[in-house]
Each structure stands twice: as structure tokens, then as C-alpha cells.
Design a binder for these strands. Sequence first.
DNA 1: GGGGGAAGGACCA
DNA 2: TTCCTGGTCCTTCCCCC
Length: 842
Amino acid sequence: MLFGLCVQCRVSLEGSMATGGTSSSSGEGFLSRMALNDNKAGMEGLNRDKINKIIMESSKGSRFYENELKKEQQVNQRIERMMLQKAHITEQQLSKAQAQVEKMTSDLERGRDLSRVIVHVDMDAFYAAVETRDCPDLMDKPMAVGSMSMLSTSNYHARKFGVRAAMPGFIAKKLCPNLVIVPINFDKYRAVSAEVREVFADYDPHFLPMSLDEAYLDISDHLEQRRGWPEALRTHLEDHGGLQETVELEGLSPVLFENSPSSSPCLQDAAGGEVEVFGTCAEEAVREMRFRIEQKTSLTASAGIAPNMMLAKVCSDKNKPNGQYRLPSNRQAVIDFIQDLPVRKISGIGKVTEKMLGALGITSCSHLGQEMALLALLFSETSWHHFLHISMGLGSTHIERDGERKSMSTERTFGEMGALEEQFSLCRELCQDLAQDLQKEALKGKTVTLKLKNVNFEVKTRAWTLPCAVATTEELFAVAKDLLKTEIDNVSPQPLRLRLMGVRVSNFASADDKKPLQKSIVGFLHKKQTDSSSTSQISSHKPVKEHPPKSPGQTQPSACPSMVQQRQGQEGHAWVPSRGGVEVGGTGENQQSFLQRPESGTDSLTCPVCFREVNTTELTVFNRHVDQCLSGVTMGQNNHTDTELERGPRVCEEEVEKEITGGKREEGPKEKGSELLSRCMLDSVGLQLDSSAGDHTESTTGLLLYETSTANISLSTVGLNPVCLNTCPNGDVSIHRANTLKVSSQSDPRVRVCLLSPGGPRPMTTPKPESRDHRGPALTCPVCQETQDTNDLTLFNRHVDLCLNQEVLHELGGLASVDRTTHTAPPAAHKGPCFRDVLFTE
DNA sequence: GGGGGAAGGACCA
DNA sequence: TTCCTGGTCCTTCCCCC
């Protein structure tokens, strides 16, 4: 393990923290949460009092110390509350809880699985070992990797002075003035880690890396095969030139395999080199793995072998460094092993939990088992279930691979920063970095969180959830900057004095959000069929056969936001509705899927690759077309030109953007821009406006007016900038696939639709900060351009709708006028921000 | 009262 | 002079239905 923040905790309430904030084991007085944790390999027998005194003297009075003090007091208050609760527990409650615990225990016992052989491998003092290997001068010196601010790990010489991971370098220097601090070099460690992982893969191709220096492996299948292996496959040549010499010179770790002597002696190979033959059992396989790692990297590893992940992790620490430990796969051995194990040894029990359990007199896993009824009454269900598993020696026997990522973030610590420009500039940089990371993994998330740590080490997080997933720098920054501004306003006129800023994206709502551009066609189709919340009606559409997914190099370009949005929209993502205008993502009957027959009633299906209608309802024929399209994309030889397939929609967008925002529109007649916009919008989804009914003009206010009886209009291409839309009375307008507008009307054959074109005549204005609350972005009406004196999103949406209605009606000949400033309507049913709230800020 | 979002914190490497 | 970074999960609080 590297960099674990493992500070020894006091385990009783008697500490004076609760009263005065400091306690002492030596009469000197110190914060227990800051005291040295010497429960680590190479730190046995240290003078803890002396070391703690130095640590406290270096820290006392600092802002960090004050904050730690505050946190310690909070924990103590938690413990006091818990003890109060405990005092009120009745015998009856306890026996009821006991019955519950017993039932669960027997259920868990029945499900105990001892069949797997799980290995946890941990490289010994990894970063320090790499640096020492590459710079032999460091061999006999106390050294650590990190900076004066923070150390990542230390070698065994340094540990003798109390220097360890997660300790600031300046304190380490006080403990050990001769300490050599080597700057961290992640690239180097990554390269070595890759070599180690190559070895892991030979034993479990699906191993689970936990960090650069740690991994879990399930070697059950390997052992199965290994039993039949001839000796030659289990024989490895020892490289004397590198490793062994180094290890002996370093004196950092014991001689190879000191703790797990080989079952077979070294033999001479034909060339005179020494070879090592390994056996077929689990210990031998792991010993071989460690041998090969050492041969390959000159670095040593420790390992634990057990029937589950929790136990394997504990076992790997048992014979560290350069050792291994196997816990036999039988129930009694597991129970015996767990009995005296300190709870703090268990992954997941940190200093706070240890302290809380300690207050109840629980320090070992056997105590945990004895007090389960009490714990069931004092802790949450999740917590006591976890405790019960630990007390029974149960853990995961299935190594979860390819677990879904839940969030992605980036943060930076710096010297005090108070200047606004600097803060906003950094915020943008962070958004940019994060956007790049998101792009690498093709991720988009709905929740953007800003993390701030002030100079007093107080951490604040402020989050905002959007109706649709975002990923670009601008999208992230639009939210993050508003969150930041709100925090700045909150402390105004004082400056916001920061020492850390971070931006996080989470709430990857669905698999489609995560990999919007890597979805197979069958996934695309199935999504539509299985998503009950989707608006699609796959009427008459049976499952379509699977097509091979495109290779990474053939994925669609993701650089263009509107295209991404469009593709997402095709996959059924809802565009959160605003009041009064169009209803989106609902269950309206007007909504269609791509595979739905066109409104015209002709028997055809729309190809999801080329977006064209195929005049058939025969799925085999349709599939053949899709196949051809796909292979055309793959081979670059489609019925359609490269330009159409690869650049078509994109080019259209660019043309549109140029038309709208550039000089073209002003150069030529207005109709030209409108025509191009219309054509491109429709082309981009392969749909056509009914020319006999479609008719549109551009107004002086930037509104594009459509008159049509039946049409599908893509909004994505005009989505480069905010788009508003509304309808005239009697228009049945809906958005399906999130960005395609469908227009039809039973009552009026000529429905009129209005789109507010992007880059319209009115620039967005800066919101008035004083009119905002702390909950989110400022609200500026995109129609009247007035910053609204309300924080209520419902009222704001209502205002926008009213403004739009007025604007539209005016454009279409005018009916009734609407007072934009009146907000008399009942509040809308939805909560939270809508699409507009996000886009129409600054 | 339950669901869900926001905020904060514990814990990990 | 100086105490990290990036991630997951859980708890608590609060609002809304």
C-alpha cells in the first residue's frame, strides 16, 4: 500500500478531545488523529512519544492543526451521541436485534464460498524502490518520494525515523534531517507498473488493479490448468546480473523468498545459469509470480492468498516486505485467523470507525462478532452488515472487473489564491483538463461539482445537476463558474481565499451517456425497445440482427457538441421539459423512433447509419441495407459519398453556423440563409420537410418561422447556440429523440412553428449577481434579455414561456399580448433547472 | 413517509 | 513556509410528492 493516510487513533472516549481538544499519552498533549501510526512494516520498536512530540511541535498552531482539531471534536461529538443512544437501549431491543443478527449469520454461513483462490499482491515501498533501483546512491540513505508538502512513500531506512507515507516533507525533515526527498515521477512508475501487470496477466488475465502497485487476482482457473503443466512450464531462469545482487546490496528487503522457502532447490541449466522450478500449488504459483516480477523489474512484492478479497488483503500485509502468506481455505482456519485481528487491519475501517468501535470496547474482529446486536442498533444497516461480514471472515469471492466509473474529477492545490481573475482562470483550466479526460473515455455526466478548500482547510462542495449530460470545456465551465461566483458572492466583500479547487463530473446516467459514440447498432436498436421510459414506439419492429461494432478508429467524431447531442438524442435521452412550450421526453403519441414508419404512411424504415428511408418493411432487406451501410462506413465505400457519411452533417452544421453567424446571411437575401438552414437541419437526420406544405421565412428578430402540415425538423444543427421554440395555437408539437421536432395537427393542416435562430440579434447579457441565490446559475431571459429578479426556476420558466409566446404571436401576426413581467400562473410541476436555465446564463 | 438531490465526510491507494 | 489527488461509498439534511 502506498500513501494510505493511516494515523493512529485513540480508541477510547477518555481522551481529553471531548473537553479540551488535546490528549496525551506522554503528558505532552497532542491530537490523537495526528499522532504517528507505526503499524507498518519497518516501523516496529520506534520511540513513539519522541516522534509524536516532534510532529505536534511542527504542526501546533497551524491552520491545518486547527482544522484537525475541529474534525476531532466532531468525531467526539458523534461518539457522545452514540454513547447516549447506547444508554437508552432496552433488553428487549437488544434481544430482538440479537435474533436478527443470528438469522443473518446463519444465512451468510450457508452462502460461504471457500472455493476460490484469491491473491492480493502489493509491491514493497513501490515508488521508493523504483527510485532506489534507478539511483543506487540512495540505497543506504533514508529517502522518501514526494515533496516538502507531502510524501508518497518512504524507504525502510527512513521508516526507522518515523518517516512514512502521507506525512508532509517538512515534518519528515524534522524527524530525519538527512532525509533525501526525491520528486515523484509517475511516468516512471507507470512504466514499471505495466511490466508488473504483464506478469499478473499470466496468472489471471482479468486481474483487478487497485493502483500502480497493487492488484487482486483470482488464480483458481490458473491452478486448475497448472496441475497438468510439465515441469518445463514451471521452470524459470534466475538472472544474477540484476536482481539478486541489487537486493543484497540494498539491504532494503530480505533475501528473496526468505519467508517462503522454495520447495525445489536451484538447478543448473544447460548454459550454466541457475534455474528455479516451481510447484503446482497456490503458494508455489504465487511464489513464481513474485519471482518473475523481481526478475523483470528488480523490485519485490508481497502477496496474500485467501478464499476472498478481504482476507487476501490482510494476508498480503502479514509477511511484508518480500513475503507471502496463505490462509487455508477452510472455515475453521478463517475463523481462527479473524479472531484476534485488530479491526483497523480491515480495509474499510479507518481512524474514525476504529475510534467509534473503540468507544464501545471493540478492538478486534472477535469483539465485533460478540457485539453485533449492539452494533445493529447503533449503526446503519449498511454499516452493521459490513461489520458482520468482517466478523465472519467473509468477503467478495468474485473480482469485479470493468466496474463502471461513477465520476471523474480533477483538482489542484496551490498557494493562497484570492484574486478573482486567477480563480476563474484556474476554474476554466480545470474544466479544460476534465473535458479532455472525459473525452478520452467518451464520458458525459449530468452533475457538475465544484470543490473548494479555503486557507483554513475547510472543504466545500457545490453541485449542480443538469437535465442533459455534458462534457465540453465550455459546458463544464458554464456551470462551474457560476457555482464559483456564488461562493465568491457569499463571502463578499471579503475575498474567497482558496488553497484548492476541483471540478467533478458525475451522474453518468446511463451506459449511453458513458459511451455515446461506441454503441453497436443492436444496442442502439435494443435501447429503443427496452427503454420503457423512452418515447419511442418500435411498432412493428422486431429485433434487428447484430452488426459488428466499429473499431475505435471508426467511431463518429465527437468534437462537435451539437453532433454529440444529436446522436444522444437518437438514443432516447430526454430533454427536460419546460412549461408551456413543448413537452419533451413524455409519452406523447406523436413521438417516433427512427425505425418507425414515416408519418406519410409509406412502407419504409429509416436506416440508422445513413439516416435515409429504405422502402421496405422486410427486416431482412432492411438489415442488408444496414449491413451495406456499415461496411460502406468501414471500407469507406458506401452508396453515399464520404462527404455525406463522414462529413455531411458536420459540414451542414458548419455551413449553417457560417450562414447564421457569419457574413453570408447579410450578403445575400435572407431567404438563402433560411433555406440552407432548413435543408441542413433536415439533411442531418435524413428527413425531408414536406415541400408542398413546408414554408418558412426569417424574421427580423432572428426567428425562423415554419409553416407545415407534417414535418420532422432537427434542432441539433441549430443547437450550436440556445434554441427556443414554441407553437401557435392548435399546433401539436413534440420533440422526440430529444432534438427532433415533429409537427403535425389534426385540427389545422398548416401548423406554424417558430424557432429562435442561434446567433440571433440579441446577445446574451451578464446576469445581475445580486438577484441570485446560492443554488445555481443566474437567470437571464433569452427572449427579453432581462435578468429576472427571481431565483425560482418555475417562475423563471414561466416568464420565458410568456415572453416566447408573446414573441411568437407577434411574429405570426399577433394575437394577444402578454405581460412579460407577470408571473401569476401556478408553479410548474417539475423541479430543478431546465435546459434553458443552463444555457441561458451569461 | 419515501424518493431523490445536495453537501459533507470516511476511507482507500 | 510548508499537510495531496482522485476516486467510491455512506450519512444526513432537506424538499417535494
